[in-house]
């Protein structure tokens, strides 16, 4: 598994993909940082000059869900198209370890981006009175941010395993992210209790709230981990299934 993980991480940085992801990630964070933390005006954002990074990070979760396909779209689609999947599917490796190896590689790139992202709270800490930015709280927020990212990555990996076209994988992953963000308010507005329940079970952002407040909630933690686990499992099943059907 670690051999696959190492190779995939190398692959992200041999090709432009890893750099592109980190660059977009930093660009969007920088814009949010400027709008929310630096400027005193409230145009569009509703925030101004906040001496706290949690709002910017919370906003970033939405953009994160739309840029994760950059990392995940090629993960299986490309191998299937180039038939390089023949290498690991005929090796003694189990499919689970291949999927996990690739998934962890994508998560590593996310972690690298998040470490670079620390520059923004550091800047806040340098220019505000001591104590206004809680380090512990910030870490909890980053944990939540990572979990939400990991969930979207797992969904993206699954989508990539279903197709051999990277474009299809990317577009479907975008669509899934959009439905997750927008579906909640649509289902809730229909007024049915059952639909509202479904909506709240889909609502990833609501679960992030406790992390944003600085609390590592057991239930949101389990929520993100189990959804990620579910999609990793489905990916393994999808690859296994294709060995039988051949399509």
């Amino acid at each position: 598994m670690w051999a696959v993980c190492k190779k995939e991480i190398q692959n992200y940085f041999f090709s432009p993909v890893g750099y592109v992801f980190i660059a977009i990630f930093m660009l969007i964070s920088a814009v949010l940082f400027f709008n929310i933390n630096l400027t005193a005006n409230t145009y569009g954002t509703g925030y101004s000059g906040m001496a706290d990074y949690s709002t910017a990070l919370q906003n970033m979760t939405i953009y994160l869900s739309f840029i994760t396909p950059v990392l995940t779209m090629r993960i299986f689609a490309e191998e299937r198209k180039n038939k390089t999947d023949q290498l690991y599917l005929t090796s003694p490796l189990s499919i689970t370890s291949v999927v996990l190896g690739k998934y962890f590689a994508a998560l590593t790139v996310l972690l690298i981006a998040m470490v670079l992202n620390l520059i923004f709270p550091i800047v806040i800490a340098l220019y505000t009175s001591s104590g206004s930015l809680s380090f512990a709280m910030l870490m909890v927020q980053y944990v939540g941010f990572f979990l939400i990212g990991a969930t979207f990555m797992a969904i993206g990996v699954f989508v990539s395993s279903m197709t051999e076209s990277q474009v299809v994988a990317a577009v479907v992953s975008f669509a899934v992210a959009a439905v997750i963000w927008l579906g909640d308010s649509m289902l809730t507005s229909l007024g049915s209790e059952a639909l509202t329940d479904i909506a709240s079970s889909l609502n990833m952002l609501a679960r992030y709230q406790s992390f944003a407040d600085g609390i590592v909630g057991f239930s949101p933690l389990i929520y993100y981990v189990s959804i990620s686990g579910l999609f990793v499992f489905l990916t393994v099943r999808a690859i296994e299934r294709r060995r039988w059907t051949g399509v």
């Binding site: 051999a3 696959v4 190398q10 692959n11 180039n82 038939k83 999947d85 290498l87 090796s91 003694p92």
Partner: peptide, 23 residues
């Protein structure tokens, strides 16, 4: 296989090391 399962962006040495690891 009919189409060798090689990764274009890796060097021969890196590729063979990877194959050794998974085998």
């Amino acid at each position: 296989p009919e189409r060798p399962p090689i990764y274009q962006e890796m060097t021969v040495q890196e590729y063979l090391k990877f194959v050794c690891a998974i085998k």
